[in-house]
Design a protein around this nucleic acid. Structure first.
Length: 278
DNA sequence: AACCAGGCTGCCG
DNA sequence: CGGCAGCATGGT
C-alpha cells in the first residue's frame, strides 16, 4: 500500500534518536519497524510517499498512532522562540516523531538501558528476542542470508526463562529487575493496559513500583509508550546540556505538552554532535 | 586497555 | 528528605 506523509518524517533520524532499539535500516531507502508482535517494512518512493507492507486497517489502527501522525510537528518546531540552541537542535532533528511503542517492551527496554550504551542496549534486547520471542516472519539480511524476525518476548516468557535462562543475555545486575517486572505484569499486579487511562503523574508513579524503574526510566516509558509528550526525561546527556547551555535551568518545562518532543530534539542533537566528533 | 554507558538501589547523615 | 558508593558487562 502507498501512504503519504506531508509532515516532518525521517525514518533514519527516528531510528537514531534513542527512543527505540529494534527498528533498523534495511537499505538506502528502506527500513524495518518492529514493536511488540508487529513489524512494518517501509520503502521511500519520493519526498512524501512510502510503500508499506500494511493494509489500511492495520495502518490506521497501529502504525498511524505508532508514528504519531495526527500531530503537527512542523508547527511545534516553529513554536520555538528566543532559544537559539533549541532552534538549532530542532532543525538538526527535523523528522523525529515520538513513537507510541508497546508498553511492556518499553518497560523492559528502558530497565535494560540504565548504565548501558545504545549499541549495548540493542544487542542485549536482540538476545532476548531471538531466545524468547515468537517468530513473526523472515527477511533477507545484509549478507543476503535469510533470518527470522522475532517478536519481543512477553512477560510470561521472561518469567519462565528465569535467572538461568536470562543469565547469558548480558543483563548484569538488571536481571532481577526484569524478573520483578515480569512477575508484576504477568500476575496483574501491574496492569499496563489499565494504567494507560491514568493521568501523567499517577502513571509515572505506578511504573516506578517496578524495581529498577526510577524517575528517568519511568519518564521514558511515559513518553515512548504512552505518548505523554509532556514528560521530558533527564539523563546524563540532557543534564549536561542543561548545565552547559541553560545554566542549570530546565528549558523544556515551559513547553507544556511538547516538552518531551523538545527534549528528544536535544537528545538527538547532542548525540549527533558527539558522533561527528567521533 | 582504561573508560564510560539514555540510572537505580540501599544506606548514611 | 539529599548525597553518594556500588553495581555487571559490553563497546570503543
Amino acid at each position: 500500500m502507498i501512504i503519504t506523509i506531508t509532515d516532518d518524517f525521517n525514518p533514519d533520524i527516528i531510528i537514531e534518536s534513542g527512543q527505540c532499539f529494534r527498528p533498523s535500516k534495511l537499505g538506502e531507502d528502506s527500513w524495518k519497524f518492529i514493536t511488540g508482535d508487529k513489524y512494518l517494512t517501509l520503502k521511500k518512493l519520493d519526498d512524501s510517499t512510502y510503500d508499506v507492507n500494511s493494509d489500511e486497517k492495520e495502518w490506521d489502527s497501529i502504525w498511524r498512532p505508532y508514528f504519531d501522525l495526527d500531530r503537527d510537528y512542523r508547527s511545534i518546531r516553529k513554536s520555538i522562540k528566543d532559544d537559539p540552541y533549541l532552534e538549532q537542535a530542532s532543525e538538526c532533528g527535523k523528522g523525529i516523531r515520538i513513537l507510541k511503542q508497546d508498553s511492556w517492551e518499553m518497560l523492559i527496554s528502558f530497565i535494560i538501558s540504565q548504565r548501558k550504551s545504545i549499541p549495548s542496549i540493542r544487542s542485549c534486547i536482540e538476545k532476548l528476542c531471538t531466545k524468547y520471542g515468537d517468530v513473526l516472519g523472515e527477511q533477507i539480511n545484509n549478507n543476503k542470508d535469510k533470518e527470522n524476525i522475532y517478536a519481543f518476548p512477553n512477560a510470561e516468557s521472561i518469567l519462565m526463562a528465569g535467572e538461568s535462562g536470562l543469565s547469558d543475555c548480558s543483563l548484569g545486575y538488571r536481571l532481577p529487575y526484569l524478573l520483578d517486572a515480569a512477575e508484576k505484569v504477568s500476575s496483574g499486579e501491574l496492569d499496563l493496559n489499565a494504567i494507560a487511562s491514568l493521568g501523567d503523574e499517577e502513571l509515572f508513579e505506578s511504573l516506578k513500583t517496578v524495581k529498577g524503574v526510577g524517575d528517568k526510566v519511568s519518564n521514558c516509558i511515559c513518553l515512548f509508550a504512552f505518548a505523554r509528550t509532556g514528560r521530558a526525561p533527564v539523563d546524563v546527556w540532557i543534564k549536561r546540556v542543561i548545565d552547559e547551555q541553560y545554566r542549570g535551568v530546565n528549558p523544556f518545562d515551559k513547553y507544556g505538552d511538547s516538552a518531551g518532543i523538545m527534549q528528544q530534539y536535544v537528545f538527538y542533537y547532542a548525540q549527533n554532535k558527539k558522533k561527528v566528533l567521533l
